[in-house]
Write a protein that binds this DNA or RNA. Structure first.
Lengths: 354, 354
DNA sequence: AGTGACTTGTAAACCGTTTTATAAATCATG
DNA sequence: CATGATTTATAAAACGGTTTACAAGTCACT
């Protein structure tokens, strides 16, 4: 069937060793022999079995991506797709393949256990997660994306606290005081093992909180509502539907979603409720995914590049694998103000009349 | 570091074989010995090295997905994401991991060569593609998605010819006679080895052609323009910008895109050109991705379920692996008429005045 | 007691590579 | 023309498992 090194050796009338050298260490043998063998290799379409090779070299040629959720949910989230794109790009450049490792039986660590890769990138895994211990104790090089910068992990992320602060400042400066914050709902299984989102979520909430405090509000104020939604268009739409049935007086005048995809989902709900964006309701998101520019009105959002995060993380994982010691990396992010946020509707602007 | 089977054997005072049996074939040895060994396994945190195990069992526990394009392009295409979701779902159910195999040096066959997986799913690979020969001759079980139903491949798809016919009929019944058809541009490298899109594209074009013929038109008629675009939002936007600068008399009154994502990209161009959908221009797509319902106006499209195609294909690949003989599978698809298509603008409806 | 059938455990071969140690052949040099 | 250095090729060990074939011990039954 698939030719092995033995077949090549037999065909060339040499030993397995010689064939191995021809492929991995050409200077070790004479040019003629090498060329002759390589020709046969080519002719028979031989390719060294990576598994067998791994047994001795300890290199498999594959990078693993430990996903926080099942694949369908991940692929529904454009920002996560961007991250994967970045990782994929880097892998391609280095000739590695990329293995997706979604939770097994709802547990990330089980996925890590059966992972069949040289190095790992995780998304949203904090330093206290059991999988961190596992990877460290087994000496598997790994880099976390959207985790924390500690001594037991190497992380790639953005300054989420500041990002959230800036975004909230923007909303407040427009006069909004009644707001809904849409968070990604961790699926139950993930919760059990320290949901990935909680890391980023906490940082952002503390950023929001800081901005709110400056105007005498806080996250538990009656006018600030925190909603959990699925991280998808439908999730956003459902959340929007719940909010938009409220009376104009009690209804939030602004929505801040933890992901653009959620924010865009609320557009559909707003349309159904005949609310105009941004006249009746202001909406903002996080991530700045491509679509956000295409929707009408274009979405105000906190820009970050998933692609960049992915690339960097993959590069760092490979660096670790090669014995390097990459440092934590935090990419800048900036607020992109587009057409979906505007001043608070005058009627709701009770603070103005004071 | 990581304990091996030898360590366990030594600690338990038995042979490697016995340990192996304790793990894989417990009935083969006495219950007591088995329990004793398993206790030690647990205590030492032993986990059989999957690489070594594979060498003899020939099962890797991983399914490979041979992608037609680099990962970033694939992940930008929601329909492809849906397919991957479906495959992922099935993999998860069976406890397999999923390895992404984008073209290596622009060649799909190179990706297949270094693939180390139990079975493969391809997207858009036709029976004449070199990789089909490769996989068949190496005895690697594989299933094609959006390929062709031949004896050398097992395929999962939809009746693309009929789908295209139905969609075109819809446009024609609305009175449209000047039309632009937006096709996915195969990236140059893929062309070199028989671009994947060509399979589906050809079927669809022949479906369009059949419908056009019924009203005395054809694909090369002056009023029918065929454009190649990138399979993304930007691709659609760019194409739209080219079309919308044309004079109202020569400008197409309808756009049919080979993918929803392209169709949605033209929305932005239409908005910039102050054209109203569907009053000034009708737009339709293929796939019925989730977003298509969320854009305003909601997109008329030919529904198909990528998720379903992916699930089925993965299931069939595994069936092949287990010695089964799954049959070709063609899923039904149906036209979803939404708000983006309407009657041809009266001024352009020259055929009416005849 | 002898026979055949199970149990239970093991030694050795094997999977497809790389790597190490070694042998044989060639070459340059005093 | 020995001698040591350098090339070139190889046999054998290793990697960490599984599987095959076999041996020893039990057991039941004639």
């Amino acid at each position: 069937m698939k030719p092995t090194i033995k077949d090549i050796a037999a065909r060339a009338g040499v030993s397995k060793t010689t064939v191995s050298f021809a492929i991995n260490n050409p200077t070790r043998i004479s040019k003629e022999t090498c060329d002759r063998i390589l020709a046969i290799v080519d002719e028979m379409g031989y390719f060294p079995n990576p598994v067998a090779r791994t047994l001795t070299t300890k290199r498999l040629g594959s990078l693993g991506l430990l996903l926080p959720q099942p694949l369908p949910e991940v692929l529904n989230n454009p920002h996560l797709c961007d991250i994967i794109s970045g990782i994929g790009e880097e892998c391609e450049k280095r000739g590695l393949s990329l293995t997706m490792l979604p939770p097994v039986q709802g547990r990330i660590i089980e996925a890590a256990r059966r992972a069949f890769v040289d190095a790992i990138v995780t998304i949203g895994v904090g330093p206290d997660h059991e999988v961190v211990d596992f990877l460290n104790s087994h000496g598997i090089p790994f880099v976390t994306i959207d985790g924390e910068e500690t001594s037991s992990t190497v992380n790639v992320g953005i300054p989420d606290e500041k990002a959230a602060y800036d975004l909230m400042k923007h909303m407040l400066s427009l006069g909004h005081r009644k707001m809904a914050i849409l968070c990604v709902k961790p699926d139950t299984k993930s919760i059990a093992e320290n949901d990935h989102r909680s890391i980023v979520l906490e940082k952002r909430l503390s950023g929001f909180s800081r901005a709110l405090n400056e105007v005498g509000l806080n996250l538990v104020a009656p006018d600030i509502s925190l909603l959990e939604t699925e991280g998808s268009l439908v999730g956003g739409k459902n959340a929007g539907e719940k909010l938009f049935v409220l009376e104009p007086g009690t209804r939030p005048t602004a929505i801040v979603a933890m992901a653009d995809i959620i924010a865009l989902g609320t557009y559909a709900a707003a349309r159904e409720a005949s609310l105009s964006i941004p006249v009746d309701i202001s909406i903002a998101g996080f991530d700045d995914i491509e679509q956000s520019r295409y929707y009408e009105p274009a979405l105000t959002t906190m820009h970050q590049s998933g692609r960049q995060k992915g690339q960097k993380a993959a590069g760092m994982a490979i660096e670790l694998l090669n014995g390097g010691h990459p440092a934590h990396c935090s990419f800048p992010c900036n607020l992109i103000v587009r057409a979906s946020t505007g001043p608070v509707p005058s009627r709701s602007a009770s603070y103005k009349s004071s």
